[in-house]
Amino acid sequence: MPSRRRGRRHRGACSPRAGQSPLVGASPAGAVVRAPGRWGRAPGPRRIARCRGHRRRGRAGPPRVRRRRRDLDRGLDDARAAAHPLSVRRFTIAPERIDGDRVAFDDEESRHMMAVLRLVPGDLVIAGDGRGSDYTVRLETLDATATGTIVGVAASRAESPVVVTLVQGIPKGDKMEQIVRAATELGVARVLPVITERTIVRLEPSRWRERARRWQRVAKEASKQSGRSVVPVVEIPRPLADSLDAEGADLALCMWEGHAPPLAEVLARVRSPRAVRVLIGPEGGLARGEVEAATARGWSAASAGPRVLRTETAGPAVVAVLQFVFGDLSGAVQRDG
């Protein structure tokens, strides 16, 4: 028995070498000729027939049976999509590409479906329209433009009741991508990169627009990964002085590692805000003059505690606290009253 198990593990061992017949050596008439196998033993004639490439592949059954199995699989897919929406592949779609119960995905999403994920007609996917609705779509054609039929629609449950805008001082390297990705997963609605006094990166306006497009792609992928139907808007970087308008925000936080009250103390002063802005500085933090300019326009300075956080940590950390206290991160949505 042990030798048989070892032989199955090395099924390719009975394959003949190039230019050599599997029946090696002379033998008398009527004798069974055995080919030398690996590990110095000769496999039996049945083992030769079981070698790789010699096995027969059975069909799935007559066409009627195959159609029945396909319909059954589709029914199971529908039930699985309804019970576990996060287990279904997610894509984004512009509202104008929805026509009645028909949808047509853009070139980028179509190429991802066909060339990367290897989806086939009949598969179920979820398409978020960027406005808070999730469409369950059964794919029909996978070509340059993937199309499908809507089989269900539901309001997204992955959006927080708190609309958070992250005003982030631009850091060095690819740290901004990390910030955008984490902030998107935590439910941020908008990311506004700003150029501060201590920002090291200085680019031409055209280069900033290119960076913003790349950050927007990161936000799109993070939205699909986290099950969101709304993709946060990543603005083109602008000077901090042009981004200090706190009008319309119930709470505007200016995070500063200087002499500022603790974040918990500032949050205790407000009740159930629905629009929050958070200002985070780049490496080195915000300058004192920038903090004074922000507080003069209605921002509340706050400290994250006795430890100094890196810029790629501070923004997501504060957003997580806001979502826990006022949003849906705790599992219970805060209500007025």
Rank of each mutant, 00 (worst) to 15 (best):
W215M: 12
A219N: 05
V230E: 06
G148L: 01
T165Q: 09
T184A: 08
M176Q: 02
L251H: 09
L142K: 03
R217C: 02
L192I: 13
W256E: 00
L203P: 00
S226H: 02
L244F: 00
L244S: 06
P237F: 10
P205S: 09
E221M: 10
E210F: 03
A264T: 13
P237C: 05
V137S: 10
K175Y: 07
V164T: 13
L186Y: 04
R202L: 10
G130Q: 03
S243E: 06
E140Q: 15
P161V: 05
S133E: 14
H259T: 14
V270F: 10
A264F: 04
S160A: 12
V231A: 02
T196D: 02
E159W: 12
A268W: 10
V191W: 03
A189M: 08
V231D: 06
E177G: 14
G173I: 06
V218D: 03
R217Q: 15
E265P: 01
D143V: 07
Q168M: 11
A182P: 06
R181Y: 02
R271T: 13
D143R: 09
R181P: 04
W208H: 02
E177Q: 15
Q216N: 09
T199K: 07
M176A: 12
V191C: 11
E257G: 07
E177P: 10
A155N: 10
D174H: 13
E235G: 07
G130H: 01
V218Y: 05
P232I: 11
L192H: 11
R198V: 08
D242E: 14
R198D: 10
A275H: 14
V163T: 12
D245N: 15
M255F: 03
R209D: 14
E265K: 12
R209A: 15
A212T: 05
T196W: 03
D134P: 07
A182W: 06
P205K: 05
Q225Y: 01
A158C: 10
P273N: 09
R228P: 09
D242Q: 13
E247Q: 14
A268V: 08
S160T: 11
S160P: 02
A144Q: 13
D242V: 07
P237G: 03
L186W: 04
L244Y: 09
V162C: 09
K172F: 08
I170M: 07
V266Q: 07
V153R: 15
R213P: 07
Q178H: 15
W215V: 11
R157I: 10
R190F: 04
C254S: 04
M255L: 15
I179H: 06
P261V: 08
A183Y: 09
V180L: 08
L139R: 02
K224I: 01
G187P: 07
R211E: 03
S226I: 08
P171D: 08
G148N: 00
A189F: 07
V270H: 11
A268D: 14
L253D: 06
V137Q: 00
V188M: 11
W208Y: 13
R181V: 03
K220R: 15
A182H: 13
G258P: 04
S160W: 04
L166S: 04
R271C: 12
G169S: 09
W208C: 04
